[in-house]
Design a binder for these strands. Structure first.
Length: 488
RNA sequence: GCGGGAUUGGUCUAGUGGUCAGGAUGUUGGCUUCCCAAGCCAACGGCGCGGGUUCGAAUCCCGCAUCCCGCACCA
């Protein structure tokens, strides 16, 4: 389906909707999860834990969202998490100063060139507005971090612009107390905050959003020494490099040099296996290798996991090789030693490098919804074909008619199941109407209580996708449902 | 932030100055109904915010906000 259909479903059924919408001063880029959205998100995160955190033996932390100024001095965000811009004094359009200068002078402008220097170059070469030819103003910066003041004296701190900084500042302690050996991965789910200039497309570009991040700390001399690689050597990867889409196994990707080392290939494979279980159509996905000018300021090699939707290609996960950018920065500023021993490398001291998988949860949720929502013309219904283990409401409980004895029995079944499963009891409207309502929110199973139930203690389980029904005994319902709702 | 379009019950929408803002869908209650959006009765619920023009504004003007598209940026 498309963006409009997903948005309409989200608004009308409570997956997500704009924040503070009853007030006129509500700001763009903030959205709330409604009841169904929370449940879907929680199940998504649980699958992420299962397929990545537990599978790989990662450590998970939950850091604070407000972090001290020094963190972002060390990480480079205060310096680099912004773009130099110039505004035209005539038409007031805004341009990237570094790109403009680079284009006109036909050179590459160093990323960290000072604003004054850029301004001087603009003056010296008489660069004017490319749109209207007007005179350009002075170079300024827009930092994307939200500044907050803490305590009575109001000292500066910032809302973290990416969750991973918590992991980096905690690294030395965690490595010691958790008896870590390289390579080790530390994971975190939490909120990040970016003061986007133009938030857009509901869940796709938010100012406050969830990330699930994984930071893999590794010895840069041993990037091919991953014994776990054997588990994924046959996993197929779709890697886009320039104009070429390679569809290869993880093993072939290494042999053909499409992915630089086994460590990167291993984690791309884990990610690929994870996403194939979310219900996203993997034939509409790719790992796109980023060109030099597309990468974040801290990355040396970067792949974006992208999914094609009605909005075009959407970036769900940034996979960045951050080298020792962060640990080195924090080590220099904090004086905390971040070097660790690598016993596998002759007991040498090493400052670990980092490969990260930085996942946008809202974007993932959106893609799952768009790829799962289908119009079933034959049966005149809208069906959200979520994988059963991701569905917000897992089971509908429906008395076939509203009659005392049938209702009583249905309520009995409902009470029996409600603590173990997310069940929804519905006795209003015709049975077909109730099935349709459940289909639209992705409920995989509906249990119907009818007259036969009163006679022989069996109920029907109706499957959302096939609309088929089977009869099972009430006593076996619990096991039956648990089996059907278990992740693969 | 710039340019363009839009904003009417939960959702989709009709309505371009003048009767109680109409419909569809939905929701709630009732009747009917034993397997896939049936029917009947009743009820609920709306003009994004602020200012202006006018005897009178959902409708015209201005400002703001939000949403959508393009540019730019990004998980």
């Amino acid at each position: 389906m498309n963006y409009d259909a997903v948005t309409e479903l989200a608004l009308s059924r409570g997956f997500y909707f704009p924040s503070c919408e009853i007030y006129a001063d509500a700001q763009a880029g903030f959205w709330e999860y409604g009841p169904l959205g929370v449940a879907l998100k929680n199940r998504y995160v649980e699958l992420w834990r299962r397929e990545l955190v537990r599978r790989d033996g990662m450590l998970e932390i939950d850091g604070s969202q407000i972090m001290s100024r020094s963190v972002f001095v060390a990480s480079g965000h205060l310096e680099s998490f912004n773009d130099p811009v110039v505004r035209c004094t005539k038409c007031s359009s805004v341009h990237r100063a570094d790109r403009l200068v680079g284009e006109v002078l036909n050179t590459i402008v160093p990323e960290r060139m000072a604003d004054g220097e850029l301004g001087a170059l603009i003056l010296k070469h008489g660069i004017r507005c490319p749109k209207c030819g007007g005179e350009l103003g002075s170079v300024s910066r827009f930092n994307m971090m939200f500044k907050v003041s803490v305590g009575a004296d109001g000292s500066d701190a910032y809302l973290r612009p990416e969750t991973c900084q918590s992991i980096f500042v905690d690294f030395a302690r965690l490595f010691k107390i958790m008896r870590c050996k390289l390579p080790v991965a530390i994971a975190q789910v939490g909120k990040s905050f970016r003061n986007e200039i133009a938030p857009r497309q509901s869940l796709m570009r938010l100012r406050e959003f969830y990330q699930a991040e994984i930071e893999v700390f590794c010895n840069p001399r041993r990037l091919d020494a991953i014994d776990r690689f054997d588990e994924v050597r046959d996993v197929m990867l779709r890697v886009q490099d320039g104009d070429t889409l390679h569809e290869v196994s993880a093993e072939q990707a290494i042999r053909k040099g499409i992915v630089p080392n086994r460590l990167v290939a291993y984690y791309l494979a884990l990610l690929s296996e994870f996403y194939s279980k979310t219900g996203i159509d993997m034939s509409r996905s790719r790992f796109r290798r980023l060109a030099e000018d597309e990468k974040a300021f801290y990355a040396t090699v970067a792949y974006d996991f992208e999914v094609h939707t009605s909005l075009g290609w959407v970036e769900l996960v940034a996979c960045n090789y951050r080298s020792d950018h962060d640990l080195k920065g924090h080590m220099l500023l904090s004086k905390e030693n971040m070097e660790v021993m690598d016993v596998e490398d002759g007991n040498s001291k090493v400052l670990p490098h980092v490969f990260e998988l930085s996942m946008g949860i809202e974007r993932s949720i959106y893609c799952i919804l768009e790829h799962s929502l289908q119009e079933d013309r034959e049966n005149d219904r809208l069906v959200l074909r979520l994988r059963p283990y991701l569905a917000p409401v897992q089971v509908g409980i429906l008395p076939i008619v509203k009659k005392d004895d049938v209702e009583a029995k249905a309520l009995e079944v409902f009470r029996m199941l409600r603590k173990e499963f997310d069940v929804f009891y519905d006795d209003s409207g015709s049975i077909g109407r109730r099935y349709r309502r459940l289909d639209e929110i992705g409920t995989p199973y509906a249990i119907t209580i009818d007259r036969q139930t009163l006679e022989d203690g069996t109920v029907t389980i109706r499957e959302r996708d096939s609309m088929n029904q089977v009869r099972v005994r009430i006593e076996s319902l619990r096991d039956e449902l648990a089996g059907r709702l278990r992740p693969p």
